[in-house]
Structures are given as C-alpha cells and as structure tokens.
Design a protein around this nucleic acid. Sequence first.
DNA 1: ATGAAAGCGCTAACAC
DNA 2: GTGTTAGCGCTTTCAT
Lengths: 357, 357
Amino acid sequence: MTYTQHQIVKRLGISRATLHRVLSNSPKVKPATRDRVLKELQELNYVPNAIAQSLKTSKTKTLGIMGPATANASQIDKLSSLYVAARELGYSIIFAYSDGSPEADANSIRELQSRMVDGIIAFDRGLHANTQLYKSLVDGGKPLVTLYPTPGVETDCIYVNTRDAFSRLTKHLIDLGHKDIGLLITASQSNYIVNRELGFRDAMKKAKLPINDNWIIYASPDGMNTINSDDEEAAAWKISDYQYGFWGASLLFAKRSRPTALVCYTDEAAIGALRAAHMAEISIPDELALVGYNDKEDAKFARVPLTTMHQPDELIGKKVLQTLVKRINGELPSKAVLEALSAKLIVRESCGSHLAK
Amino acid sequence: MTYTQHQIVKRLGISRATLHRVLSNSPKVKPATRDRVLKELQELNYVPNAIAQSLKTSKTKTLGIMGPATANASQIDKLSSLYVAARELGYSIIFAYSDGSPEADANSIRELQSRMVDGIIAFDRGLHANTQLYKSLVDGGKPLVTLYPTPGVETDCIYVNTRDAFSRLTKHLIDLGHKDIGLLITASQSNYIVNRELGFRDAMKKAKLPINDNWIIYASPDGMNTINSDDEEAAAWKISDYQYGFWGASLLFAKRSRPTALVCYTDEAAIGALRAAHMAEISIPDELALVGYNDKEDAKFARVPLTTMHQPDELIGKKVLQTLVKRINGELPSKAVLEALSAKLIVRESCGSHLAK
DNA sequence: ATGAAAGCGCTAACAC
DNA sequence: GTGTTAGCGCTTTCAT
C-alpha cells in the first residue's frame, strides 16, 4: 500500500503544509510534532510521488540517455560511472533506445521531451545525420551533453581525442622502426571511425612515411563469409567488431604484399585479426605487429596480449554527468563546455616492442 | 518552446475536451475541426507532458530495471531486445543502478516506487539476500519479473535452466571419454554460481564418475597476483571473469595432478584459463579439454575457439518484457509465470571433440 | 508554528 | 459534436 500526503495528514490531524515542512526539513515545526510525523511516515513507509512533485516543480530529476543499446557493451564503463554519479546526485536515468538512425533518434528525443527529462546525454558515435535534431534541442534550451563533438551544434561535450590517440598509437609503431603500416577500420562516416583514420594519417605524414592505400582496409560484410554460418542473416549493425577485424585482416592477408604493422580500430577488431593471422599462419608480432584500441579486458587475455590505448571511461562518465547537472542548475557559462581527454598507450606484446632491443 | 494544451486551446478557440478528442482519435469530432487542430499541433510541435498524463491516469508507462550496471556487459543481448520491445509497446525504461547489495537494492526499489513505474525487472544474479524486498514489492501488488527464480517470492520469472545447461555441458565432456573433470567457478551464494556447480555434479553423479575436490576451484583474489599490477586496488566486484579464470586455472595447474577436462563458469573465465594454460605450456585441447558458458562473441575468436552453451538471450529479453506488460494489464492468471528456457551446446575446438574419432 | 488555498498539465465524466 | 468541471499528489505563497 502506498500512502499519499492527504491520507497521512488526515491520520495525524495536521495540515499538508506542516507535513511538507517536516518532509523538507524546515526548522519551523515544533519538535514534538516533527517526531510524531516522522514516526508515522516511517511506520506507513511513505514514499513520495515523484510524478506529482515533478508536475508541481517542473523539475523531474531525471536524465535521458539516448543511444544504441548495442553500444552499451563497449561504453559500459562510461555508463556505469554515470549511473553511480546520477544516483549520488538524486537523478534517475531514462534510457531511450535508438539504433542511431534519424527516425529512431527523433523518437528518442520525443520520448525524453515528453517525460520532461531535465537533461539529455547523447551516447551516439558522432554521426552527423542528426545535427538538426540536436540543434533543435539545444535551441529549445534543453541541456545536452554529447560524447563526440558535433559541428554546428553548440553544446557541451566531453570526449576523448581519438584522432590524437590514433596518431600516438601509430607513432608507437613508427618509433619501433616500422615503415610499412596498415590500418584496419570499417566504412563509416561517424566521428567514431573518421577520426581514427585521420589520426593514423597524421602520424604517417608527420613521419614522412608513405601510405599504401592497399593497406587501408575498410572492412565490410560484402562478399565475405562469416566465420560461423548461422550469422549470415544478422543485420549489419549486429556484426561484431571481432568479425570486422577477422574479415578485414583476411582481406589484407590475401593481398600480394602486406605491411609489417597494422593498426586496428578496436581491440575486438584486433582480436579478430589475431585469429585471421593464426589461420594464415602469420606470427604476431614477429611477422606482423598489431595494435588495438580501447583496452578492453579481453585485450589483456588475447592470444597475444594487445598493445592498445586506454580511455579514461569512468572519468568521462562522471564528468559527463557533472557537466550536465551543472548546466541544468545554471552553474555554467553560456559558452559550451568542450573538454577533450587523452587516451593512454598501454604496451603489451602484440606490437613486438618487447622484442625490439 | 513547448506548448501546453491550455495554450493550444486558446489559440484555436476550442475546448480542452475537443483537443483531447483529437489527440485520442475519438471519432466524435467534426473533420474540419480535427484537421485544423492537427495542423496546429504539427506546427507547434506539440509534445504531450507525460508527467501530467501519468499523474492523472496513475499509469506512467515506465518500467524499472534494477540491477548492477556491470552486469549489463554480459546481459547486453537481453537488455537490448528488452529496450526494443519496450519502445514498441510505448514503455520507457528507467534504469535503477544497484551493485546488488541489499542497501542499494532498497534504494533502487524506493526510486522506482517513487517514480511510479508500472512494473519492475530485477536484473540481478539471483542473490537471495533481497528476498524480503522483492516480497514486499510483490505483496504490494507491483508487477515484478525476475531472471532467476527466487524461493519464497511468488513472482513471474523467465530464466535459463543453468543447472541443466551445466549438466549437459559436463555430459558432453563425459561423452568424449573424460573421467577426470574439474570445475572452475567463484565462491558465491548466488543462483548464478550455485546452479552451475549443481549441474556439474548432476552430470558426474549420473555418469557415476567420482568428483575430485581438488579439481573444484573456487577462484578468488586471495593471495593471487593480478596479471596487471595496477588492478590491485580494484574492488572485488570489479574483477573480471577473465581474471578469475586466469587465477583459478593457475591454481589448478600448480597442483600435483590435474584433470583431463575443465568446465569453466563463463566464456571469459575460460579465456582466462586459456591464457594460464598457455603460460603453463599446457596444450588445449590436447592436454586439457576446456569449455565455457554463454557463447559470447569472443568465445568464437579465442586463442582456441571455445565450446560453450548458448543462451537465447534476445528471446529472454523479449519474453520478460511481454510477461511484465501482460501482468500489468491484468492479462495473466494470478499464479506466477515460471518459464525455463534451455541453453544450446555449441561445439568448437576447445573441447577437442574434433580430434576424438 | 500552523493552516488554507491555488495550481502544475492532463483526462474523463457529465452536461449541453 | 462540443464545452465545463473536478481532481490526480504535490509544493508554495499568504494568512493567521
């Protein structure tokens, strides 16, 4: 049974205002009254109706997250620190599922607007198709924090400088003496992918190393066989990075020549590539140095432990939430916060640097 | 800018009731009026205030998920199908973070009750510490679906029969001719763990095979070195299954004798064990057959592709949601729904069955 | 230190 | 076909 203030007030023979005063810790209430009320509250296990509170105050103390549910797996660390921080600040999280398509995103935004969330976190991968949607949100005054900068939308953003990260990752290989370096990514226009390629090119250019287009692999399902036949009907967005890595590397290994080092767009892709190398009897790192990105737990336990970049995901989740809440509370200057964090190089065996001496 | 019905009604010179009729597709409104209203609605981009609707109707069309955010990674498939199904039925999801402790769970329940969710999904691992909490929920009439049966709580439950799954997994090894079989799990009282051990014992007993207690490993951080030193301060619940698998297997390999086959409690643990085997120069599957559980994507791409059990996670997510919504709508008999689904054996290389001929 | 009353945005019963 | 009205549970101003 759940009681309302009305019922409690009747039982106690006091007024709603008094009840509210003890609920809100106002000092203006006689200790004796307060105790009596508190006791009753306890006894009846009173739980305030947040819906009614929200309607009255026009603050829901809820935050919306919009993003692809499938991205959660890779963003899990950001998400969990975000949840923890939200609870600490008294906010609830509404997760509005979206596959990243403009239609789904529009639905998510409608859902969150309708629920009157106090702010929104866009957990997408920086696809620009939805710039207009975000713009309308921000113009409408709804606080929005994104995880990738969105050109054209002046909104708060906490992100990892992936371009720089990939540049440094590539440079690590260059410093090891590699000159023939390939890149394994997927075909996509998202920031998520594009910045990785840009970072790679930055490093190569800076080192005055030529880029062999044959060694830039855009992995895709086209004409590939899945490693497991019953995957075949799976939609493209459900294909894992492992699979893309496996396909991409297989493609590379089938070519007439191959680089001495390969940068993969995620750890999962690198693990897929590891498997392709194993099947092609190419020894890692002796015959091919390999690096991933993200420092997922399985990178540590891969066939060959992966050299990779570690993102400060927990910190990001925390900062995202804090920024959003500050924005909601009007504690931030009107200029959008744009904070870039750096990834950190984690050297393990797959790059072969333990051999180079 | 977000408009209220009041403002729209004023602009249009009609009554709230008429507006409402248009909004709710009531036939009792003159087509001309309807069109005029619809056009204005469109123009003003009217978004209904779900908070006000909820207060009025005492239905929020929201569902609460309570569970550890860290579990999401392994339960991601259940979660995403659940999100999709929720959207289809017009429900929003509030995620109430909890680390599984009774205090955190109590907080989650309070949060969800306060937000007046129409129903709750308990995404925990079947820890019984919170039986009372669940019981009070159910007794209070709040629809609740769990993912593990909770003795003492009469509530809907959609789950995988892990005990049976582990029994069949173990039997696969027995059928391959193994007699000396070990089990690698963690020390925990949760259903999640306990049923795995029970299933293993069932199969051994049925085959009249002795169980060597030395080969039942309860992996724990005690006295172990992490594979990566900066993990050391991490709390126990943040330790990955990979790590437990690595520790557990290392422990086993240090013993005087070892089994010819090892059942691991998850794929991640099996991958950790794979690494330990590699370091101990034990060849998998030749010297030790190894199996995991869950059929995660990385099982396919492991150093040795893992034989494992596949759970119908997407189906579960969908069923959980459908059951909950039916319960909310009063479409279910008062007796609790208890539906067990089966896991499916996926044979790859790590069990060595491709060698046995 | 306490109480009365208005109103947040919406729905639905009832009257016309 | 259309309009009037009460009220969901809460917060908050204004009296007392």
